[in-house]
Design a protein around this nucleic acid. Structure first.
Length: 579
RNA sequence: GCGCCUGUAGCUCAGUUGGAUAGAGCAGCGGACUUCUAAUCCGCAGGUCGGAGGUUCGAAUCCUCUCAGGCGUACCA
């Protein structure tokens, strides 16, 4: 049983994994000889920029130079000397100038890797660097008090893409939306809907100061009135009961929650779980967690009755309120309970994706987890910076006063799911971003998603031209030598290396790397295609060349489709020019 | 005031987490369609990596200071 598993694992083991373990073994020997602990020596395998530098490079000797007080070149030579049997794909290992260890792959080896790709592309892009580590990614978690807007889109897309990428890299991923279905915001929502309903009944009520002013609540009020259990618009709001159980508030919030869910589904974002804040109260989790903190002597009461958490004892710069002087727990209190629940589920890692405007919240959250005895390192917080909307170069105001902002739904309708997703992934999370609606809407060259999709369509059209189905194209190892153009060698290497990027993206939590790699691969293909289209077509008259290139073409089409899928973008087989 | 993020080609952004010779895309200029889809490609030009110090074999990347922009600094979430 065990052997079978290992065998299957080995079948999918990547070259770079073999190279890494080859080097790790050698470095370990060096460490033993020098009385060093191996744990502190990371053996990093990277892709060098120039061909002369091989296919993989390891700068570990450079890093060790400082520790050992010896020249990097000496150390590199010594490490190279400790290398035992080379993996079958490796041609040679060289030590280069400042102290790099460069690894060269055998000429035919990249092509041979395409066999696995063609047989099972979905499996080919996966790896096991995640080691089945369980990860909960919490994202979006917008209040169910209004439709999602453009600012939410970035976190939503990043979180979903990260989930897909990490799952491919062998993490056990769980996606969760934390639903703030109680508290001040819901009460304010109830009051706002109430006024909107009364206005429709002919009362001339005005929206209170802290109300939700968006026009969408007029619609919500109308729908509540039309529903069979419509009640309450004629009454005073207070007579309908406590905010958390007030039927107008809860009904409106549930309706908006459904809208949010639908908007996300239109972006192909689906959550494994919607975690209700209210359930924390129902199950007394907030009480319980506060009692635990109390038991550790970490709570104290102010004169006015507010209860503080001593977060300064764990690195925060001031203590935080958990119960207000009016005896209502704060959002922070339930969030502590929520994160306590996450940890209690026994997950290895918790990843939260927050808007950058919440960054001040991080120290107190980490403090709370430390106080409860959890390792704060296991709670990773990824901040996505703000998105500012631009229309043809001019800033678009978000209409905070009127409450009518540019919604995610509008954006998806106008721009399309694929473009929205891809554009948000062409920037790393911690850079502020200008989103030009006009640009995204235009199906122009500046829209990188079409560039990649067109590349895929082009590949598929070659296969169609050959009157083959992509499934008919079979790998044959002897075809390798017919791919003689340098671009062809580059392309098959890029295809085979794609899972390496997936690993990097997962380990560094940066799904944008996948988008950039796809653009790079497609660029190389377009360039190759155009260069030879009049002299040496992919579909050569020479049957061997033709067969070899079809293998390459199919491999590229497969990998691009899987790659696009990884960032949640479709891969059409045909794309027609602008009508 | 304090804290966090950002500053790289005219514009929008990458840069393998401290490594080898800083890269794309737009925009500009000049070229390539009898097509396996020109939604493409090729070439040219464009840089004191905001600035100043420092750390070391080596800095766009780390530390200090400084300038600029954004965001926070609630008994809101």
């Amino acid at each position: 049983m065990l052997n079978t598993c290992n065998w299957i694992k080995n079948r999918n083991m990547k070259v770079w994994t073999k190279v890494r373990s080859m080097l790790t073994d050698a470095v370990a020997q060096l460490a033993v000889k020098n009385g060093l602990s191996i744990a502190h020596i990371p053996v990093q395998v990277e892709q060098p920029r120039f061909e002369k530098q091989g296919d993989f490079a390891c700068p570990c000797a450079l890093a060790l130079a400082r520790v050992l007080h010896r020249s990097p070149m000496d150390i590199a030579e010594q490490i190279a000397g400790y290398i035992g049997d080379l993996p079958s794909e490796v041609e040679k290992v060289e030590v280069a100038r400042p102290g790099y260890i460069n690894v060269f792959i055998k000429p035919g080896a990249w092509f041979d890797m395409l066999e696995g790709l063609l047989n099972d592309p979905a499996r080919f892009i996966t790896s096991d660097v995640g080691d089945d580590m369980s990860v909960l990614i919490e994202f979006v978690s917008a209040n169910p008090t209004g439709p999602l807007h453009v600012g939410h889109a970035r976190g939503a897309i990043l979180g979903d893409a990260l989930a897909r990428v990490m799952a491919a890299a062998g993490f056990a991923v769980h996606k969760e939306y934390y639903l703030n279905d109680r508290g001040n915001q819901i009460a304010a929502l109830g009051r706002s809907v109430h006024v909107r309903g009364r206005q429709q009944h002919g009362y001339d009520d005005e929206l209170p100061e802290n109300a939700y002013k968006g026009k969408y609540l007029i619609d919500i009020a109308k729908r509540i009135m039309e529903s069979p259990d419509a009640i309450g618009f004629k009454l005073q709001y207070e007579t309908l009961g406590e905010p958390d159980s007030n039927p107008l508030a809860t009904t409106a919030s549930r309706m908006l929650q459904e809208e949010i869910k639908k908007d996300l589904e239109d972006l192909d974002i689906r959550f494994d779980n919607w975690f209700s804040e209210r359930s924390l109260y129902r199950e007394k989790r907030v009480e319980q967690v506060l009692t635990r903190l109390q038991g550790k002597g970490l709570l104290y009461e102010l004169q006015d009755g507010a209860v503080m958490f001593r977060s300064t004892a764990f690195g925060d710069d001031q203590d935080r309120v958990v119960i207000r002087s009016n005896k209502q727990p704060t959002y922070f209190a339930s969030d502590i309970a929520y994160h306590d629940q996450k940890f209690r589920r026994g997950l290895d890692r918790l990843i939260n994706i927050w808007g950058a405007d919440h960054h001040g919240y991080i120290p107190r959250m980490h403090a709370a987890m430390k106080a409860l005895g959890y390792d704060p390192e296991k709670l990773e917080i990824i901040l996505v910076q703000m998105v500012s909307l631009v229309q043809g170069g001019k800033p678009v105001t978000m209409g905070k006063r009127s409450g009518d902002y540019y919604t995610l739904r509008q954006l998806v309708e106008e721009v399309g799911k694929d473009a929205v997703r891809f554009i948000f992934l062409t920037r790393k999370a911690d850079a502020q971003m200008e989103f030009d609606i006009q640009l995204a809407r235009s199906r122009s060259l500046e829209n990188p998603v079409y560039y990649v999709q067109y590349g895929h369509a082009r590949l598929r059209s070659i296969i169609a031209k050959a009157e083959l189905s992509i499934d008919d194209i079979e790998f044959r190892p002897e075809l390798s030598r017919f791919l003689q153009h340098p671009e062809e060698q580059q392309l098959i290497k890029k295809a085979a290396m794609f899972p390496f990027t997936v690993e990097q993206a997962a380990l560094t939590r940066q799904p944008h790397l996948v988008a950039f790699t796809l653009m790079d691969m497609v660029k190389t293909f377009h360039s190759y295609y155009t260069r030879y289209k009049n002299t040496d077509k992919v579909l050569s008259r020479d049957p061997d060349k033709r067969a070899a290139r079809l293998v390459m073409t199919a491999a590229l089409a497969r990998i691009i489709k899987e790659g696009l899928n990884l960032v949640g973008v479709s891969a059409p087989e045909v794309m027609n020019r602008e009508p």
